[in-house]
């Protein structure tokens, strides 16, 4: 009776002749790891000193800070999976891609969260028959243009109120352009193969709970990789190198784009960081705010986990280039020069 899980995990497949040796189930390994960690707490604590100072704090901070938004994301994704029929999206979204992509982009306004939450939602939308380009436009626009982010931007840039509108336009334009490019050039086989849920199977609350569990553990797992990468880069690269590139416009824009990718800040706090870069021209700050929510080291990890590596290696560079160009052009239009 007590060995249900081992049995489940190690049950030889029907029709396989040879017997497999006993392997512990994941639940047993999980318990063992936790037990060992508690028993070996002191040696582990000493060993953790090899990490760069502050690494574990920044790592935990990014994870803790992202969790509420990720939970919101998987709850929305679970609702879509369990309670919203697939025909809802075909009815609501325009049939033509040229319309569906911008509409999906504008829908991003409705999700008050940061970028980690929108990954499982976009995945679920594709699952429910939304065309990938439209789901990707939503993925990119939601973290950039939702009301919480716009209010935070307005607070950070009190004396440059145009920044809010510039950010809204640049974020939406990036999402729509990337969605459009993907619609023309993207191939379905770049996306990880989808396994369609049999229609009518396990709808309602059990399906909801199951979707929340699967989405959360998967997306959070990759969030952890991204947080570790961001913490490493943060604690190894001194931030002061930014101060020396402010003189050159091109250099400062590129540096801000790379920094947005590397820092992997939550889109609700990046405006405050951008405002604090004293020597950077305003166009560079807009590029920072456009690239950050669209593509960063944490998002690439989550996207390659959710949509597959072949997707991520194409989507991330595309998004990066489009965001830099759109951010720069929007900045020039809004602020009438580099400044």
């Amino acid at each position: 009776m007590t060995s249900v899980h081992q049995d489940r995990d190690t049950e030889p497949p029907a029709g396989t002749a040879h017997r497999r040796r006993w392997r512990p189930g994941s639940l047993e390994i999980l318990g063992l790891v936790l037990l060992l960690a508690l028993l070996l707490r002191d040696p582990l604590q000493r060993w953790s000193k090899v990490l760069p100072s502050g690494w574990s704090t920044v790592f935990v901070a990014i994870c803790v800070q992202a969790t509420p938004f990720l939970v919101l994301g998987v709850l929305v994704s679970g609702v879509i999976a369990a309670f919203v029929p697939a025909r809802f999206f075909t009815a609501v979204l325009p049939r033509r891609a040229a319309l569906a992509v911008p509409v999906a982009g504008v829908c991003g306004i409705a999700l008050p969260g940061c970028e980690c939450g929108s990954v499982p939602i976009a995945d679920r939308l594709m699952d429910r028959g939304v065309r990938p380009s439209a789901a990707l436009a939503f993925l990119l626009s939601a973290p950039a243009i939702n009301p919480v982010v716009l209010v935070a931007t307005a607070v950070a840039f009190t004396a440059e109120p145009r920044m809010v509108w510039a950010r809204l336009v640049a974020g939406l334009a990036t999402a729509v352009v990337v969605g459009g490019v993907w619609e023309r050039l993207g191939r379905p086989e770049w996306l990880r193969p989808r396994v369609r849920r049999p229609v009518g199977d396990a709808q309602g609350w059990p399906a909801f709970v199951d979707a929340v569990r699967g989405d959360f553990t998967q997306a959070a797992g990759f969030l952890v990789i991204g947080a570790a990468a961001a913490a490493t880069l943060q604690t190894v690269v001194p931030r002061a190198f930014m101060e020396h590139v402010g003189g050159s416009v091109v250099l400062s824009i590129l540096a801000m784009a790379v920094l947005a990718f590397v820092l992997a800040l939550c889109s609700e706090s990046d405006a405050f960081v951008a405002a604090s870069f004293a020597t950077i021209p305003v166009v560079g700050k807009l590029v920072f705010l456009t690239v950050g929510p669209a593509v960063d080291v944490k998002l690439v990890a989550m996207q390659s986990g959710t949509f597959g590596r072949r997707f991520a290696v194409r989507f991330a560079p595309l998004t990066f280039v489009v965001a830099v160009v759109v951010g720069t052009v929007t900045g020039l239009l809004f602020f009438g020069g580099w400044r």
Partner: peptide
């Protein structure tokens, strides 16, 4: 196996 897509 995509998590989001693998049914219960």
């Amino acid at each position: 196996g995509s998590t989001g897509a693998v049914p219960a």
